[in-house]
Amino acid sequence: MEHRVLGVVGASGGLGASTLAVALGVRAAASVGATVCVDGSFERGGLDVTACIEHEPGLRWPDLSDVRGEVDGADLLRSLPADGVARVLAARGSPVPDDVVGACLGALSSICALTVLDLGGSLRWVAECTDVLLVCGPTARHLADAAAVAAEVGRLGVPVRLVLRAGRREPVTGEQVAQHLDLPHAGTLVDDSQVVADAERARAPGTRRNGAFVTAVDRLLAELEVCAGRGVDADRVSA
């Protein structure tokens, strides 16, 4: 069984990369079993806030700062906050030792078919990824930022694909942006007002049964062939 570590990075701020990261974990869980969404940037906090589970008990990155030696992936996964099958390992604005991050990522990815790593504003952990989704907007500024990020990821030898974030009447297509950046086009996220409404109602991204956003996320997962494998069963995590 293939264990994927899917990195998600926004070429610029405000493109919804964290929302996409959570939705990927939520949508994939129904097909592959337990998944985990991980904050890969520690300067800020709150992937659990994006997932609307900041009130749920469980470990966050600062709680793991003193971990030493081998980490049991199943035990760690069980200890993370969740609302449903997808679990979240969130930052709290505090640095975590590199060896702890590496050990925890390795442990989680060893038992989950999909680990979604929200790279945030840092590419520090991109080398841990098997694939990277680069979220880019359609403006000249977005394209310049995306080109710089793609070049840095490419130097590390990690496959990167483009996800265009666009308005409903955006004249530029994902294929055009991908061609400009010389990247494979994974999909397009069209603005969906339901995502904002869900966040205001403390509803996690990806939990709707239908809508433009969840349809696009499902297409991304199919394009990446994420749902071909299966990780640890949800029953094992909740036991």
Rank of each mutant, 00 (worst) to 15 (best):
A28D: 08
A103G: 01
A29M: 08
A150N: 00
R169T: 15
G187A: 00
G14Y: 03
D66E: 15
L164F: 12
G120Y: 06
A107N: 03
R201W: 01
D118M: 03
T115R: 02
G120H: 04
H180N: 10
G40L: 00
T207R: 10
G7C: 06
I53R: 09
L181W: 11
D75C: 07
R161L: 13
A21W: 00
T130F: 01
R44N: 11
L24D: 07
G167E: 01
V100M: 02
L64Q: 00
V214M: 00
V177T: 14
S31T: 08
A11I: 00
V135S: 11
R92H: 13
R209N: 10
R68V: 13
V160S: 08
D145Q: 10
R141T: 11
V214K: 05
L224R: 09
L105P: 05
H185Y: 13
A151C: 03
G187Y: 02
V172D: 00
V158L: 07
D66M: 04
G231T: 04
V226D: 11
E200Q: 11
L224G: 05
D218R: 15
G7Y: 04
R141Y: 11
G137V: 10
R209I: 03
S193C: 07
D235N: 12
E54P: 09
V85A: 12
A178I: 07
A34K: 03
L221M: 08
R92C: 11
D218T: 02
V153R: 01
D191A: 12
L224K: 06
N210Q: 13
A204V: 02
A239K: 08
H185S: 14
T35V: 07
A216D: 02
I53Y: 09
D98F: 10
V88H: 14
A222T: 15
A91T: 05
D66N: 07
L164R: 06
L181C: 10
V38D: 05
V149E: 01
W125E: 10
